[in-house]
Design a protein around this nucleic acid. Sequence first.
DNA 1: AGCCCTGTGTGACTTTATCACTGAACCTTC
DNA 2: GAAGGTTCAGTGATAAAGTCACACAGGGCT
Lengths: 207, 207
Amino acid sequence: MLQHSILETLPGPLRREALSGLQPLHFEHGKILFRAGDPCQGLPLVLNGSVKVQMTGLSGHSIVLYRMGADEICTLSIGCLMTGDGFRAEAVVEDDAEVYMVPRGLFDRLMDQSADFRLGIMESYGRRLNDLMLLVEEVAFRRMDERLFQWLEARVGQGVITITHQELAVELGTAREVVSRLLKEFERKGLLRLARGKIEFTDSFPR
Amino acid sequence: MLQHSILETLPGPLRREALSGLQPLHFEHGKILFRAGDPCQGLPLVLNGSVKVQMTGLSGHSIVLYRMGADEICTLSIGCLMTGDGFRAEAVVEDDAEVYMVPRGLFDRLMDQSADFRLGIMESYGRRLNDLMLLVEEVAFRRMDERLFQWLEARVGQGVITITHQELAVELGTAREVVSRLLKEFERKGLLRLARGKIEFTDSFPR
DNA sequence: AGCCCTGTGTGACTTTATCACTGAACCTTC
DNA sequence: GAAGGTTCAGTGATAAAGTCACACAGGGCT
Protein backbone atom coordinates (compact mmCIF):
# COMPACT_ATOMS: atom_id res chain seq x y z
CA MET A 1 0.00 0.00 0.00
CA LEU A 2 1.15 3.52 -0.79
CA GLN A 3 2.32 5.34 2.24
CA HIS A 4 4.65 7.96 3.54
CA SER A 5 6.21 7.66 6.96
CA ILE A 6 5.24 11.18 7.97
CA LEU A 7 1.60 10.13 7.62
CA GLU A 8 2.14 6.87 9.51
CA THR A 9 2.82 8.78 12.69
CA LEU A 10 -0.56 10.50 12.63
CA PRO A 11 -3.22 9.32 15.10
CA GLY A 12 -5.86 7.13 13.40
CA PRO A 13 -8.66 9.65 12.80
CA LEU A 14 -6.31 12.35 11.54
CA ARG A 15 -4.56 9.89 9.25
CA ARG A 16 -7.87 8.77 7.78
CA GLU A 17 -8.83 12.38 7.22
CA ALA A 18 -5.50 13.09 5.52
CA LEU A 19 -5.58 10.01 3.31
CA SER A 20 -9.16 10.65 2.25
CA GLY A 21 -8.07 14.02 0.92
CA LEU A 22 -5.04 12.69 -0.97
CA GLN A 23 -4.63 10.53 -4.01
CA PRO A 24 -1.25 9.53 -5.38
CA LEU A 25 -0.27 11.38 -8.53
CA HIS A 26 1.88 9.56 -11.00
CA PHE A 27 4.73 11.40 -12.73
CA GLU A 28 6.84 9.88 -15.48
CA HIS A 29 10.53 10.30 -16.18
CA GLY A 30 11.25 13.76 -17.49
CA LYS A 31 8.04 15.30 -16.20
CA ILE A 32 8.42 18.68 -14.54
CA LEU A 33 6.82 18.78 -11.08
CA PHE A 34 7.21 22.55 -10.96
CA ARG A 35 9.15 25.24 -12.79
CA ALA A 36 10.83 28.42 -11.61
CA GLY A 37 8.14 31.04 -11.11
CA ASP A 38 5.27 28.56 -10.68
CA PRO A 39 2.99 29.16 -7.72
CA CYS A 40 2.98 26.32 -5.20
CA GLN A 41 0.09 23.87 -5.48
CA GLY A 42 0.78 22.04 -2.26
CA LEU A 43 3.43 20.16 -0.34
CA PRO A 44 4.69 17.17 -2.33
CA LEU A 45 5.32 13.96 -0.36
CA VAL A 46 7.39 11.64 -2.53
CA LEU A 47 6.23 8.02 -2.15
CA ASN A 48 8.69 6.44 -4.54
CA GLY A 49 10.87 7.19 -7.54
CA SER A 50 13.34 10.05 -7.69
CA VAL A 51 13.02 13.78 -8.29
CA LYS A 52 15.88 16.22 -8.76
CA VAL A 53 15.64 19.90 -7.87
CA GLN A 54 17.77 22.27 -9.92
CA MET A 55 17.99 25.97 -10.47
CA THR A 56 19.10 28.14 -13.36
CA GLY A 57 21.17 31.21 -12.67
CA LEU A 58 21.06 34.60 -14.32
CA SER A 59 23.95 33.41 -16.45
CA GLY A 60 21.72 30.72 -17.94
CA HIS A 61 23.70 27.94 -16.27
CA SER A 62 21.94 25.34 -14.16
CA ILE A 63 22.96 23.27 -11.18
CA VAL A 64 21.31 20.38 -9.37
CA LEU A 65 20.68 21.40 -5.75
CA TYR A 66 19.51 18.08 -4.31
CA ARG A 67 17.38 15.03 -5.06
CA MET A 68 14.37 13.55 -3.31
CA GLY A 69 13.71 9.84 -3.10
CA ALA A 70 11.10 7.57 -1.53
CA ASP A 71 9.65 8.82 1.73
CA GLU A 72 11.00 12.34 1.40
CA ILE A 73 9.33 15.72 1.52
CA CYS A 74 9.79 18.63 -0.86
CA THR A 75 10.53 21.06 1.92
CA LEU A 76 11.37 23.77 -0.57
CA SER A 77 7.66 23.97 -1.35
CA ILE A 78 6.72 24.97 2.19
CA GLY A 79 8.25 28.40 1.91
CA CYS A 80 6.38 29.05 -1.32
CA LEU A 81 3.20 27.61 0.17
CA MET A 82 3.43 29.99 3.13
CA THR A 83 4.46 33.19 1.40
CA GLY A 84 2.73 32.59 -1.93
CA ASP A 85 5.98 33.43 -3.74
CA GLY A 86 6.88 31.39 -6.79
CA PHE A 87 9.58 28.73 -6.87
CA ARG A 88 13.17 29.74 -7.56
CA ALA A 89 14.02 26.25 -8.73
CA GLU A 90 12.48 23.50 -10.83
CA ALA A 91 11.83 19.86 -9.98
CA VAL A 92 12.36 17.21 -12.65
CA VAL A 93 11.34 13.56 -12.29
CA GLU A 94 14.24 11.19 -12.89
CA ASP A 95 12.74 7.80 -12.01
CA ASP A 96 8.95 7.56 -12.37
CA ALA A 97 7.50 8.81 -9.13
CA GLU A 98 4.30 8.77 -7.15
CA VAL A 99 3.55 11.83 -5.08
CA TYR A 100 0.90 13.01 -2.64
CA MET A 101 0.17 16.71 -2.99
CA VAL A 102 -0.83 18.05 0.43
CA PRO A 103 -2.89 21.21 -0.06
CA ARG A 104 -2.34 24.26 2.12
CA GLY A 105 -5.40 23.72 4.29
CA LEU A 106 -4.57 20.13 5.15
CA PHE A 107 -0.94 21.07 5.76
CA ASP A 108 -1.98 23.73 8.26
CA ARG A 109 -4.28 21.30 9.98
CA LEU A 110 -1.61 18.61 10.26
CA MET A 111 0.90 21.13 11.59
CA ASP A 112 -1.68 22.20 14.14
CA GLN A 113 -2.75 18.75 15.25
CA SER A 114 0.34 16.55 15.21
CA ALA A 115 3.64 17.08 16.98
CA ASP A 116 5.10 14.15 15.05
CA PHE A 117 4.13 15.73 11.74
CA ARG A 118 5.83 18.96 12.83
CA LEU A 119 8.90 17.00 13.83
CA GLY A 120 9.03 15.31 10.44
CA ILE A 121 8.76 18.63 8.65
CA MET A 122 11.46 20.22 10.80
CA GLU A 123 13.80 17.30 10.29
CA SER A 124 13.30 17.44 6.58
CA TYR A 125 14.06 21.16 6.62
CA GLY A 126 17.19 20.54 8.60
CA ARG A 127 18.42 17.94 6.13
CA ARG A 128 17.79 20.23 3.19
CA LEU A 129 19.64 23.09 4.82
CA ASN A 130 22.52 20.73 5.52
CA ASP A 131 22.54 19.46 1.93
CA LEU A 132 22.74 23.00 0.64
CA MET A 133 25.47 24.01 3.07
CA LEU A 134 27.56 21.06 1.99
CA LEU A 135 26.88 21.90 -1.64
CA VAL A 136 28.10 25.47 -1.14
CA GLU A 137 31.29 24.16 0.39
CA GLU A 138 31.76 21.67 -2.42
CA VAL A 139 31.16 24.15 -5.20
CA ALA A 140 33.34 26.79 -3.59
CA PHE A 141 36.34 24.70 -2.59
CA ARG A 142 36.53 21.28 -4.16
CA ARG A 143 38.29 20.38 -7.36
CA MET A 144 36.17 19.43 -10.28
CA ASP A 145 38.00 16.20 -11.07
CA GLU A 146 37.39 14.94 -7.51
CA ARG A 147 33.74 15.95 -7.59
CA LEU A 148 33.17 14.25 -10.94
CA PHE A 149 34.99 11.17 -9.72
CA GLN A 150 32.82 10.99 -6.60
CA TRP A 151 29.68 11.41 -8.66
CA LEU A 152 30.74 8.49 -10.85
CA GLU A 153 31.88 6.43 -7.87
CA ALA A 154 28.40 6.66 -6.33
CA ARG A 155 26.98 5.06 -9.49
CA VAL A 156 29.63 2.47 -10.25
CA GLY A 157 27.22 -0.30 -9.32
CA GLN A 158 25.08 0.46 -12.35
CA GLY A 159 27.84 -0.64 -14.73
CA VAL A 160 26.70 1.68 -17.52
CA ILE A 161 25.32 5.17 -16.97
CA THR A 162 23.11 6.86 -19.53
CA ILE A 163 23.79 10.58 -19.35
CA THR A 164 25.11 13.31 -21.63
CA HIS A 165 28.08 15.46 -20.74
CA GLN A 166 25.75 18.46 -20.66
CA GLU A 167 23.51 16.81 -18.06
CA LEU A 168 26.54 15.84 -16.03
CA ALA A 169 27.73 19.45 -16.18
CA VAL A 170 24.40 20.54 -14.65
CA GLU A 171 24.80 17.95 -11.90
CA LEU A 172 28.09 19.53 -10.92
CA GLY A 173 27.36 23.13 -11.85
CA THR A 174 30.13 23.46 -14.42
CA ALA A 175 30.53 23.72 -18.20
CA ARG A 176 30.04 20.87 -20.64
CA GLU A 177 33.57 21.22 -22.02
CA VAL A 178 35.06 20.75 -18.57
CA VAL A 179 33.15 17.50 -18.10
CA SER A 180 34.15 16.29 -21.57
CA ARG A 181 37.81 16.93 -20.91
CA LEU A 182 37.84 15.32 -17.47
CA LEU A 183 35.96 12.26 -18.69
CA LYS A 184 38.39 11.91 -21.59
CA GLU A 185 41.19 12.05 -19.06
CA PHE A 186 39.55 9.24 -17.03
CA GLU A 187 39.15 7.25 -20.23
CA ARG A 188 42.82 7.69 -21.06
CA LYS A 189 43.63 6.34 -17.61
CA GLY A 190 41.50 3.30 -18.44
CA LEU A 191 38.88 3.92 -15.73
CA LEU A 192 35.95 4.02 -18.14
CA ARG A 193 34.83 3.86 -21.75
CA LEU A 194 32.89 6.67 -23.37
CA ALA A 195 30.17 6.47 -25.98
CA ARG A 196 27.54 8.93 -27.14
CA GLY A 197 25.26 9.48 -24.16
CA LYS A 198 26.85 6.67 -22.15
CA ILE A 199 29.61 6.05 -19.66
CA GLU A 200 30.76 2.49 -19.03
CA PHE A 201 32.97 1.60 -16.08
CA THR A 202 35.90 -0.70 -16.68
CA ASP A 203 37.17 -3.24 -14.18
CA SER A 204 39.97 -0.90 -13.17
CA PHE A 205 37.52 1.68 -11.81
CA PRO A 206 38.00 1.40 -8.04
CA ARG A 207 34.99 0.11 -6.11
CA MET B 1 11.68 47.34 25.26
CA LEU B 2 13.37 44.26 23.87
CA GLN B 3 11.15 42.30 21.62
CA HIS B 4 11.06 40.00 18.66
CA SER B 5 8.19 40.09 16.21
CA ILE B 6 7.66 36.33 16.32
CA LEU B 7 6.82 36.71 20.02
CA GLU B 8 4.54 39.70 19.41
CA THR B 9 2.07 37.54 17.55
CA LEU B 10 1.57 35.23 20.51
CA PRO B 11 -1.69 35.50 22.48
CA GLY B 12 -1.21 37.34 25.78
CA PRO B 13 -0.89 34.45 28.23
CA LEU B 14 1.43 32.47 26.00
CA ARG B 15 3.57 35.53 25.40
CA ARG B 16 3.89 36.19 29.10
CA GLU B 17 4.85 32.57 29.65
CA ALA B 18 7.47 32.78 26.90
CA LEU B 19 8.95 36.07 28.09
CA SER B 20 9.13 34.89 31.67
CA GLY B 21 11.32 32.01 30.55
CA LEU B 22 13.65 34.19 28.46
CA GLN B 23 16.22 36.79 29.28
CA PRO B 24 18.22 38.61 26.63
CA LEU B 25 21.82 37.46 26.37
CA HIS B 26 24.39 40.01 25.34
CA PHE B 27 27.13 39.04 22.89
CA GLU B 28 29.99 41.31 21.91
CA HIS B 29 31.72 41.73 18.59
CA GLY B 30 33.83 38.70 17.80
CA LYS B 31 32.04 36.41 20.24
CA ILE B 32 31.22 32.95 18.89
CA LEU B 33 27.55 32.04 19.36
CA PHE B 34 28.27 28.44 18.42
CA ARG B 35 31.04 26.47 16.74
CA ALA B 36 30.98 23.55 14.35
CA GLY B 37 30.30 20.41 16.36
CA ASP B 38 28.66 22.20 19.30
CA PRO B 39 25.38 20.76 20.51
CA CYS B 40 22.44 23.14 20.17
CA GLN B 41 21.45 25.01 23.34
CA GLY B 42 18.24 26.46 21.99
CA LEU B 43 16.75 28.49 19.20
CA PRO B 44 18.40 31.93 19.02
CA LEU B 45 16.10 34.87 18.32
CA VAL B 46 18.24 37.83 17.34
CA LEU B 47 16.87 41.05 18.85
CA ASN B 48 19.48 43.43 17.44
CA GLY B 49 23.04 43.55 16.18
CA SER B 50 24.38 41.29 13.47
CA VAL B 51 25.59 37.70 13.42
CA LYS B 52 27.28 35.96 10.51
CA VAL B 53 27.08 32.22 9.94
CA GLN B 54 30.02 30.61 8.21
CA MET B 55 31.33 27.13 7.62
CA THR B 56 34.77 25.68 7.10
CA GLY B 57 35.28 23.01 4.49
CA LEU B 58 37.47 19.94 4.60
CA SER B 59 40.01 21.96 2.66
CA GLY B 60 40.29 24.36 5.58
CA HIS B 61 38.72 27.21 3.61
CA SER B 62 35.75 29.07 5.05
CA ILE B 63 32.79 30.83 3.52
CA VAL B 64 30.08 33.06 4.97
CA LEU B 65 26.70 31.42 4.36
CA TYR B 66 24.40 34.21 5.50
CA ARG B 67 23.95 36.85 8.18
CA MET B 68 21.20 37.47 10.69
CA GLY B 69 20.10 40.90 11.79
CA ALA B 70 17.50 42.36 14.14
CA ASP B 71 14.26 40.40 14.36
CA GLU B 72 15.63 37.30 12.67
CA ILE B 73 15.71 33.68 13.72
CA CYS B 74 18.64 31.28 13.57
CA THR B 75 16.69 28.66 11.70
CA LEU B 76 19.79 26.56 11.26
CA SER B 77 19.58 25.77 14.95
CA ILE B 78 16.18 24.10 14.67
CA GLY B 79 17.54 21.10 12.79
CA CYS B 80 20.21 20.59 15.43
CA LEU B 81 17.67 21.15 18.19
CA MET B 82 15.42 18.44 16.78
CA THR B 83 17.94 15.79 15.84
CA GLY B 84 20.51 16.53 18.54
CA ASP B 85 23.24 16.61 15.88
CA GLY B 86 25.95 19.20 16.23
CA PHE B 87 26.23 22.32 14.08
CA ARG B 88 28.03 22.14 10.76
CA ALA B 89 28.68 25.86 10.81
CA GLU B 90 29.72 28.53 13.27
CA ALA B 91 28.07 31.83 14.17
CA VAL B 92 30.21 34.89 14.84
CA VAL B 93 28.89 38.17 16.22
CA GLU B 94 29.75 41.14 14.01
CA ASP B 95 27.87 44.00 15.64
CA ASP B 96 27.17 43.54 19.36
CA ALA B 97 23.95 41.55 19.58
CA GLU B 98 21.22 40.69 22.03
CA VAL B 99 19.67 37.29 21.69
CA TYR B 100 16.88 35.27 23.29
CA MET B 101 17.73 31.57 23.54
CA VAL B 102 14.49 29.61 23.29
CA PRO B 103 15.02 26.20 24.91
CA ARG B 104 13.71 23.04 23.31
CA GLY B 105 10.72 22.65 25.63
CA LEU B 106 9.46 26.17 25.11
CA PHE B 107 10.01 25.89 21.36
CA ASP B 108 7.89 22.73 21.23
CA ARG B 109 5.19 24.40 23.26
CA LEU B 110 5.10 27.49 21.04
CA MET B 111 4.99 25.34 17.92
CA ASP B 112 2.12 23.43 19.44
CA GLN B 113 0.11 26.42 20.62
CA SER B 114 0.54 29.14 18.02
CA ALA B 115 -0.16 29.01 14.31
CA ASP B 116 1.50 32.41 13.93
CA PHE B 117 4.66 31.17 15.59
CA ARG B 118 4.71 28.20 13.21
CA LEU B 119 4.20 30.55 10.29
CA GLY B 120 7.10 32.71 11.41
CA ILE B 121 9.38 29.70 11.72
CA MET B 122 8.37 28.36 8.32
CA GLU B 123 8.91 31.72 6.66
CA SER B 124 12.31 32.02 8.23
CA TYR B 125 13.19 28.55 6.98
CA GLY B 126 12.02 29.48 3.51
CA ARG B 127 14.19 32.60 3.47
CA ARG B 128 17.25 30.68 4.61
CA LEU B 129 16.75 28.04 1.95
CA ASN B 130 16.40 30.78 -0.64
CA ASP B 131 19.54 32.53 0.59
CA LEU B 132 21.51 29.33 0.28
CA MET B 133 20.14 28.53 -3.15
CA LEU B 134 21.15 31.96 -4.39
CA LEU B 135 24.56 31.55 -2.80
CA VAL B 136 25.10 28.24 -4.60
CA GLU B 137 24.24 29.92 -7.88
CA GLU B 138 26.53 32.82 -7.14
CA VAL B 139 29.49 30.70 -6.11
CA ALA B 140 29.05 28.34 -9.03
CA PHE B 141 28.49 30.79 -11.86
CA ARG B 142 29.35 34.38 -11.06
CA ARG B 143 32.66 36.05 -11.68
CA MET B 144 34.69 36.95 -8.66
CA ASP B 145 35.32 40.56 -9.70
CA GLU B 146 31.55 41.18 -9.99
CA ARG B 147 30.86 39.52 -6.66
CA LEU B 148 33.58 41.51 -4.91
CA PHE B 149 32.33 44.68 -6.54
CA GLN B 150 28.78 44.02 -5.35
CA TRP B 151 29.99 43.29 -1.86
CA LEU B 152 31.80 46.64 -1.79
CA GLU B 153 28.90 48.44 -3.43
CA ALA B 154 26.57 47.34 -0.62
CA ARG B 155 28.91 49.06 1.87
CA VAL B 156 29.85 52.18 -0.04
CA GLY B 157 27.80 54.30 2.38
CA GLN B 158 30.26 53.56 5.17
CA GLY B 159 33.03 55.47 3.42
CA VAL B 160 35.82 53.40 4.95
CA ILE B 161 35.59 49.66 5.61
CA THR B 162 37.75 47.95 8.19
CA ILE B 163 38.45 44.45 6.97
CA THR B 164 41.45 42.37 5.98
CA HIS B 165 41.77 40.72 2.59
CA GLN B 166 41.64 37.35 4.33
CA GLU B 167 38.28 38.15 5.94
CA LEU B 168 36.97 39.41 2.62
CA ALA B 169 38.07 36.16 1.01
CA VAL B 170 35.96 34.25 3.56
CA GLU B 171 32.99 36.47 2.76
CA LEU B 172 33.21 35.42 -0.87
CA GLY B 173 34.56 31.91 -0.43
CA THR B 174 37.77 32.48 -2.34
CA ALA B 175 41.50 32.83 -1.69
CA ARG B 176 43.18 35.82 -0.11
CA GLU B 177 45.45 36.35 -3.09
CA VAL B 178 42.48 36.62 -5.44
CA VAL B 179 40.95 39.35 -3.28
CA SER B 180 44.28 41.19 -3.03
CA ARG B 181 44.73 41.19 -6.79
CA LEU B 182 41.18 42.27 -7.56
CA LEU B 183 41.28 45.05 -4.98
CA LYS B 184 44.60 46.24 -6.40
CA GLU B 185 42.93 46.30 -9.80
CA PHE B 186 40.10 48.43 -8.43
CA GLU B 187 42.66 50.73 -6.83
CA ARG B 188 44.48 51.12 -10.13
CA LYS B 189 41.17 52.11 -11.70
CA GLY B 190 40.84 54.76 -9.00
CA LEU B 191 37.70 53.30 -7.40
CA LEU B 192 39.25 52.97 -3.96
CA ARG B 193 42.34 53.42 -1.82
CA LEU B 194 43.90 50.53 0.08
CA ALA B 195 45.64 50.58 3.43
CA ARG B 196 46.53 47.86 5.88
CA GLY B 197 43.20 46.45 7.09
CA LYS B 198 41.20 49.21 5.44
CA ILE B 199 39.42 50.01 2.21
CA GLU B 200 38.46 53.59 1.45
CA PHE B 201 36.08 54.47 -1.37
CA THR B 202 36.99 57.35 -3.62
CA ASP B 203 34.49 59.73 -5.19
CA SER B 204 34.69 57.84 -8.47
CA PHE B 205 33.24 54.70 -6.92
CA PRO B 206 29.74 54.55 -8.44
CA ARG B 207 26.86 55.00 -5.99
C1' DA C 1 67.02 49.99 17.25
C1' DG C 2 65.85 45.23 16.70
C1' DC C 3 62.44 41.73 16.62
C1' DC C 4 58.05 39.63 15.71
C1' DC C 5 53.59 39.06 13.97
C1' DT C 6 50.15 39.99 10.80
C1' DG C 7 48.79 41.69 6.48
C1' DT C 8 49.73 42.67 1.58
C1' DG C 9 51.94 42.23 -3.16
C1' DT C 10 53.38 39.42 -6.79
C1' DG C 11 55.54 35.86 -9.97
C1' DA C 12 54.96 31.24 -11.66
C1' DC C 13 52.07 27.68 -12.45
C1' DT C 14 47.71 24.76 -12.39
C1' DT C 15 42.90 24.32 -12.83
C1' DT C 16 38.61 25.86 -14.49
C1' DA C 17 35.66 28.65 -17.58
C1' DT C 18 34.61 30.57 -22.01
C1' DC C 19 34.56 30.94 -27.00
C1' DA C 20 34.72 29.09 -31.39
C1' DC C 21 34.66 25.62 -34.23
C1' DT C 22 34.97 20.56 -36.09
C1' DG C 23 33.34 16.25 -36.79
C1' DA C 24 30.76 12.08 -35.23
C1' DA C 25 26.43 9.69 -34.07
C1' DC C 26 21.74 9.32 -34.51
C1' DC C 27 17.05 10.44 -36.45
C1' DT C 28 14.08 11.71 -40.02
C1' DT C 29 12.19 11.64 -44.51
C1' DC C 30 12.05 10.52 -48.69
C1' DG D 1 19.81 3.52 -47.80
C1' DA D 2 21.18 8.27 -49.08
C1' DA D 3 20.52 13.14 -47.78
C1' DG D 4 19.91 16.44 -44.50
C1' DG D 5 19.14 18.01 -39.88
C1' DT D 6 19.92 17.76 -34.96
C1' DT D 7 22.22 16.54 -30.88
C1' DC D 8 26.64 15.17 -28.73
C1' DA D 9 31.42 15.11 -28.09
C1' DG D 10 36.32 16.67 -28.81
C1' DT D 11 39.66 20.23 -28.86
C1' DG D 12 42.63 24.53 -29.44
C1' DA D 13 43.10 29.21 -27.78
C1' DT D 14 42.51 32.34 -24.31
C1' DA D 15 40.85 34.37 -19.90
C1' DA D 16 39.70 33.93 -15.06
C1' DA D 17 40.50 31.93 -10.67
C1' DG D 18 43.02 29.07 -7.37
C1' DT D 19 47.58 27.47 -5.46
C1' DC D 20 52.25 27.80 -3.95
C1' DA D 21 56.13 30.22 -2.55
C1' DC D 22 58.18 33.96 -1.03
C1' DA D 23 59.34 39.07 -0.33
C1' DC D 24 58.39 42.86 2.10
C1' DA D 25 55.70 46.49 4.75
C1' DG D 26 53.25 48.29 8.96
C1' DG D 27 52.74 48.40 13.57
C1' DG D 28 53.49 46.74 18.32
C1' DC D 29 56.82 45.35 21.80
C1' DT D 30 61.21 45.05 24.38
